[in-house]
Nucleic acid binder design. Sequence first.
DNA 1: CATGAATGAGACTTCATTCAT
DNA 2: GATGAATGAAGTCTCATTCAT
Lengths: 198, 198, 198, 198
Amino acid sequence: MPRVVKGYRKQAMNTIMESASRLFFESGYQESSMDDIAREIGVTKGTLYLYFKNKEELLYEVCKRNTQLLEDNLDKIISEDILESAKSFFKTELELPEHLRFHWIFALGEINKNQRVRKILMESYENYVKIISSRLELLKERGLISRDADSRKLSLTLIALHNGIMISMMQGLSDTNASEMFETGIRSILENSSLYKN
Amino acid sequence: MPRVVKGYRKQAMNTIMESASRLFFESGYQESSMDDIAREIGVTKGTLYLYFKNKEELLYEVCKRNTQLLEDNLDKIISEDILESAKSFFKTELELPEHLRFHWIFALGEINKNQRVRKILMESYENYVKIISSRLELLKERGLISRDADSRKLSLTLIALHNGIMISMMQGLSDTNASEMFETGIRSILENSSLYKN
Amino acid sequence: MPRVVKGYRKQAMNTIMESASRLFFESGYQESSMDDIAREIGVTKGTLYLYFKNKEELLYEVCKRNTQLLEDNLDKIISEDILESAKSFFKTELELPEHLRFHWIFALGEINKNQRVRKILMESYENYVKIISSRLELLKERGLISRDADSRKLSLTLIALHNGIMISMMQGLSDTNASEMFETGIRSILENSSLYKN
Amino acid sequence: MPRVVKGYRKQAMNTIMESASRLFFESGYQESSMDDIAREIGVTKGTLYLYFKNKEELLYEVCKRNTQLLEDNLDKIISEDILESAKSFFKTELELPEHLRFHWIFALGEINKNQRVRKILMESYENYVKIISSRLELLKERGLISRDADSRKLSLTLIALHNGIMISMMQGLSDTNASEMFETGIRSILENSSLYKN
DNA sequence: CATGAATGAGACTTCATTCAT
DNA sequence: GATGAATGAAGTCTCATTCAT
């Protein structure tokens, strides 16, 4: 790592978080030792403590960063065509490295053990709901989904579908099948939007 | 624990697994020490080794048992009316203790670390698909869902929806909302079954 | 160490404390590692944690025990003749192993760092004053020291003299010289007891 | 720290020693990290190594300097009246910052661990004895104390009394009480100087 | 002169596992 | 069948020290 570079510190932290994130996902938080993480980058244990005050802080920052990255991904959908948006969103997601794509599943495993992680995850969940709801409102205005539909309920259902499919992927579902299921699922739900009354 | 009872060994193993399962879910596998597990039952560490050859074996047996229990729950659905079946299945699920209900989410966290656990989970997933597919075939025969529908794809989608909702519950979704979303989601999917062509 | 002996635990704790006390005195608290202490007894580090929850707790218990032992030593003085008592007290003290005899000097070094140790030391100081004062009161009644003398002030001075001499011993003063100085010092003070008015 | 000043180096070393001395006394030698010491002055760790080759050297220099300062304090006593001298000496001592006043108690804790510190302390002890003995010889010549008295023994006793009182102060004895005890103690000893035969 | 990034040894502590009783 | 004393490996974290800039 070059040393006297402007922004060096931030860059170093990113390198560490990237490495930690991958290891946490692949082997679990407890199972990844600070030694492992350091070795992966080619520094020594002690160095990590120059950037993160302890292991838990590192976990926290990794979660915060990954959650943000995933939110950014969702936020970029701008197309008018919701189905098209969903498809491109999912496609982008598939291109992410596993440890990022499945980050929230990993984080879920820590939710019971760590209050700060839990908080991040819950806030992120709420953000997702808000972003998607606002998109659905637009569709409603344009008459593409039922005026009676509760866009919050629809959002919750869409997110559940998405998450469920991600989990299936972890259990072996192929990318192709997953994409198809995601698309068809969304259509099923939106075309029956009138069912989701409030 | 009474000692000279027939079936005592099996009973003792169950007591241990129950305790371990709860702790694993609440605090994580690594974070639950053999001491913790033993203390919870009121025996000493050493005793656990009379019943399980090591901690990993205990994890394995817990996963096997819990997975089986969840499968049994699904298997009990017998009603002709698929929506009614789904509702009662979900209701039964809600009555399970958390560590059992969410067991597969916990197990998912171990999937990358433990081949045997991964195997159990994948097999169980296949079993679910099979059970549900066979139920859907019946519906097809009775003309309740489109004859063109691929019942495997439908199953995968239904499972994904279910799992996604369970995850939302871990993030705070209420029982009532979850039930409603599950029911409405299923209807959305089944009423559009023609979309799921093979 | 024999294992299944009644009172085994207490005996084991004593062995550890004895060893720790010596090392703490010889090399300092921070400088004595749990490894060192364990090695000295011929067990492994982990064993220490079966008896003391952490190093600080071990320090605390060592201080409590040593302070008690020293108090007991003072408490045994029963002779009517105060000078004779002092002499025998000092003689007994000289026979103690260094780490016990000088324990309070060691503890003094921890007084600023550890509230619990400070508390023990202060209480012990008060106890000394009480014990000696009560002895002096007897002398007053028998007219051996001035009726005007403040026995508390006398005690404080006698203790200061004693402690000062102990310190000189740490700096190289011989046993013989120390004994003589202690005896003569006490006589100087008691024979001028009228100076210590309240 | 201003850099291009003549005598700057010496001044910088003093700043560091002052800071180190306070921290050593307050938190102990081992417990004070080079980082702590540096932070207290507002420089970084590395800087300390420009002035002291390592931490032990810093300890050594601190001890040497503090010991010298205390000796200087004793050396300044010039009055003919020994009691008056003692009083003013003690008064001056009370005005010193704690880490200086109690320095030798701190150093005592290091005596077993560090040969160089031990040497300083012992030499300093001898110096004290010499200085006080020579003062007592003057008193003897003027017939103020017994001609039979061994002035070395008297010195040792006076020093012991002084040190003992200082220790009592660390354990909570008030300044006023300490002063009174010191004065009265000295009178007790000197007025019975004939007891200190050689 | 001064910095601060990096090191690496070593400290405390935990815990799965074994085994004599 | 059960205990609990003991182990030893491994993990987190600290810190004196070095060195390129």
